[in-house]
Design a protein around this nucleic acid. Structure first.
Lengths: 348, 348
DNA sequence: GTGAAAGCGCTAACAT
DNA sequence: ATGTTAGCGCTTTCAC
């Protein structure tokens, strides 16, 4: 291994420790620790002296050392796709909750692969985080239960029920229903759904619920024979590939419902390139109402699942759970259709 | 403080420690530690036995405990604006470098405020990260030097020189020059620049370099009298507000050069709403070439500063520095103009 | 090449 | 209310 002039011991101007604070204040480290943690059992004057010492030495506690015995006051977030702008607003919501507490947020980026995600989650656990927020994980449920047993956990995306962790999800079936009903009201019948490929045993994923909601809503409108599931990746490239396939189809669907905005944008990209007129020749709907969808020239009709509130809710649940609650809670938020300019009356 | 059934001691099924591994392998913890770290001084058979024990116990080292004495094998990233899609590709580039090493990436989200950023950086230091990547920090340089003294640091955005840390930045003056030259070639003379407001003593910020580059390029074309700096926030809302102001100006600029894509999109949003034709009535240029700029209906002309390579370069520099290098390095990447459909010949 | 033991900074029993 | 002390899991001298 290379020379490491930066190894802990040699760091210049070594910072003050709780021992320094205690000595400076003329008290025991235990008392200093109590003041630091804000627990009861210290006289006001003791508190004052210790706090003065902390300020004088610009003391900042070592998070690692705290974590060795107690809490790290840090919450880990597994983010499955940092590119998705929807997650940005979600993180904002999360952060606002924790900012008011003494907890800090640390985000570990992962890819969409299950192995990558599990590795990242393990690493977060190895960091002794006080709690975990898993954003759109693709892990199997028994594995999530296993994690929930080890550490307070909130899962965003996949639906409950769960025994060892909390969930925050949107009512994805309802979201799909809103879309189908709206499209049918516009006269569409050949409505295709872009379904994200996923292991068939992961039955609680949002993609699964959105697909089921689509099928059910189609059935309710007596359009079972028109149900068309197109498999693709919920990514820009995936959507683009699906767009290409759809354009080659005959008869072509009059509307395509992508389960995620990123995928819908991919479909649109292909259509724009091919000169297909939107929505005259093809209506396109997304899901997430990401910031990009709202851009005027994009104006993508989408389902809003209020990422900000999702994040905030997850934050509150996790705080609760860290505080002691052990019964699982499964919050479901109600989605809302946002109609923009990529959808219109069916023509063909 | 509430009950904490999750405190470390009570966690169910407590995981294996290095002591367990050593006992299981029938060796000392010191030897087990050597195998874990992959250092020299262990016989092949010792290595084998210890590795077998680790596997048998599914041992994973405690990162906190490692960090107490040695390294955490974790790198902290201060992200000043998680909403900016440009940063997503930057993180990807960073991550790819670290993924091949044993280092893990942890991102701490901050806001654009200097206080928030400094707090986040402190916290990253309190976590004993092995290194820091600061993305577009607004801290003062002496403070950055201070940080660089404590911990291997790479700063992305602000230009060097620096003594205690490395920098990765784009050649922002050149970027601005490319834009101005291009617009002038199209016949534009009234070219306004949207400058981000920032403390005047932060002279190495990209926004400063881009503004200077704009002024210089204008001067070189004998257009000093046309130099128009419009102050605004480099955000969607900020751009929108500037757009409003520009539309009310007479004579109106024929082109506006926003120093960042997010701001350019805000300007465009206002124009689209107001029915201003782009680029016939107004040419708009951004900076960053973020994924959003490339969307077909947006098609924003922008300066590409290859975020992916910026991230990758920063990762390599940090790895170097953690490995022992102490002379500062200041990498400058060459930007490239990407012409799309928000720019055209000057008409008025 | 291997092991014993000290200690990183802090918290939590347990005294007093 | 305050202090003493034993660790948390690991790395690191320093013996052997």
């Amino acid at each position: 291994m290379a020379v490491e002039p930066w190894s802990a011991g040699q760091r210049p101007a070594k910072r003050a420790t709780i021992v320094d604070v205690a000595r400076h204040a003329g008290v025991s480290t235990a008392s200093a620790s109590k003041v630091l943690r804000g627990v009861q059992g210290v006289s006001p004057e003791m508190r004052e002296r210790v706090e003065a010492a902390m300020a004088a030495l610009s003391y900042r506690p070592h998070r690692l050392a705290r974590g060795m015995r107690g809490s790290t006051f840090t919450v880990g977030v597994m983010l499955s796709d940092i590119d998705n702008p929807f997650f940005g607003v979600l993180i904002k919501g999360l952060n606002e909750v924790f900012a008011t507490q003494k907890y800090e947020l640390l985000i570990a980026p992962a890819t969409s692969g299950e192995d990558s995600q599990n590795a990242v989650i393990d690493s977060l656990i190895d960091h002794q985080m006080d709690g975990l927020v898993l954003v759109a994980p693709r892990s199997h449920e028994d594995h999530l239960e296993e994690i929930g047993k080890q550490i307070p956990t909130v899962v965003i995306g996949p639906h409950g029920p769960s025994q060892q962790y909390d969930t925050v999800s949107g009512d994805d079936r309802l979201g799909s229903e809103l879309v189908v009903d709206y499209l049918v009201a516009l006269g569409h019948r050949r409505i295709a759904f872009l379904v994200n490929q996923h292991p068939s045993d992961l039955v609680n994923l949002p993609e699964e619920a959105r697909a089921r909601g689509y099928e059910e809503a189609m059935a309710r409108r007596d359009l079972t024979s028109e149900v068309t599931l197109i498999e693709g990746d919920w990514s820009h490239e995936g959507g683009r590939a699906v767009g290409q396939r759809v354009l080659e189809t005959y008869p072509r669907p009059t509307a395509i419902f992508a389960g995620a905005d990123v995928a819908a944008l991919g479909v649109l990209a292909r259509c724009w390139e091919a000169g297909v007129r939107i929505p005259e020749e093809l209506s396109v709907v997304g899901y997430d109402n990401s910031p990009t969808a709202a851009l005027v020239p994009v104006s993508l009709t989408s389902v809003d699942q209020s990422g900000h509130e999702m994040g905030a809710t997850a934050g509150r649940l996790l705080l609760d759970r860290i505080g002691g609650r052990s019964e699982p809670r499964n919050e479901v938020l109600t989605p809302r259709l946002v109609v923009r300019r990529t959808t219109g009356a069916a023509h063909s």
